[in-house]
Structure formats: C-alpha cells, structure tokens
Amino acid sequence: MTSSHYAPDTLAPARSWTASALCRSIADPDAFFPTGNGATVQQQTNDAKQLCASCPIRMTCATTAIRENYQYGIWGGLDERQRRSLARVPKADLPAAIRTAWKRRTYDHHFDAYASRTVQIDDGHVMWTVKNTSVTVLGRNWTPRQLALWVGQGREPHGPVKTHCSRPDCVAAEHVGDAVVRMLRARQIKEVAA
C-alpha cells in the first residue's frame, strides 16, 4: 500500500475559520474599515467592535490579525492601534492580553462628550451644538477644539488648538490642530514644494 500526500477528491474542502464570523452577515464590509478621524469614524469603529463582541470566533480573528500583521480595519474587536500594542506579546500570553484589551475598551468618556455635543454638517465639517464653550471630562475642562483634537489624535493638545479649514467654527477632529499638527503640516508643505 502506498501513501499519498494529497487528499482524495472525495473529501470536502476544509472549512475556513471565517465561515462562522458574524461580520460575514454585514452587507457593507467597509463598516469594519473606518478611515479618517472624527466622531463619525469613532462611531463606526465602536459599532464594528460591538458586533465583534458577540462573535463566536473573535479570539481566532484577533490572534490571526495580530500574527499576520493585518494593517487596517477592525479584527476580532481590536483596531489597528490595539493590535500594534499586542504585536510583541509572546504567543502563549496573547489570549490573556487580548481579553485585557477587550475589557479596557468599554467606554470612551472623551468621545461620548464630543459626540453628544456635535453634529456633522456638509463637507465633513462638525459643529458644536450646545451653548457651553467648555465641557468637563474626567475632572478636566476642555474647549470644543481641544476635545476634537483628543478624539482625533488620542492625546493632550500642545499649545492652542485652532481650526484650519474654511469654517472657523468647525470642530471636526480632522480640521483642528495644535502646535504639533501645525508643525507637521508645515513640514509636509515644505517637502512638497521642494
């Protein structure tokens, strides 16, 4: 009797782990690939992660995305930044680290304060909808532009935060910048001109 390294044609093909994924039931796969910054993208990211939270294969999805270095999108309830932070975790410790990352992402006070006080209008602009010109989040006062920068950049502002689009009252995360953003924009303009 001889053995073959090939499976006979009568065997059914192996079923992919993705066949059980809940995201396969979503009509728009782009829902798991948010692009840009701001409240709309953050909401899309939160919605995708919410669906992942009840998916039966989210651990497999998350570990595969980390091991295979998937650059974009929401995989296994983790975004790009979360996966990058887990990339160097030893294989044996990865499931516990992923579970910790899932728990950490329960509620974003800054995003909630921003989203509940803004509305998106034409051409990607976002307007502040309340009369108060500051809001307290986790014991710190934020101006609308500072809060927009936090939502877009995930960090404290350095210097004054200003709008750099055609609408001076816009608070879209991608339309505001602090000293760091202005310096980077000036450098990019200089490089393009050279």
Rank of each mutant, 00 (worst) to 15 (best):
R81Q: 11
H109P: 06
F111C: 00
S85P: 00
A65L: 11
I121T: 13
W102V: 03
D93E: 15
S85G: 10
A101N: 04
Y72C: 00
T106Y: 05
G77T: 09
Q71S: 14
V89N: 06
W102S: 07
E80G: 11
W102Y: 12
R117W: 01
D79N: 15
I98L: 09
I66Y: 13
T106R: 14
L78T: 13
N69W: 08
D79I: 09
R81D: 13
G73N: 03
H110Q: 12
E68Q: 15
R84G: 09
R88M: 08
I66L: 13
D108H: 08
P95S: 05
S116C: 08
A97I: 04
G73T: 06
I66G: 11
A92I: 04
Y72A: 11
P95T: 05
D122T: 12
Y114R: 03
E68H: 13
K91Y: 02
E80K: 08
R117S: 09
L78S: 04
Y70L: 13
Y72D: 13
D112C: 01
R104N: 13
E80L: 01
P90E: 07
A65G: 10
S116P: 00
V89Y: 02
D112K: 05
H110M: 02
V89R: 02
R105I: 00
R88N: 15
G77W: 03
K103M: 07
E68L: 12
P90A: 01
R99I: 02
E68C: 05
Q82H: 05
P90K: 02
R117A: 10
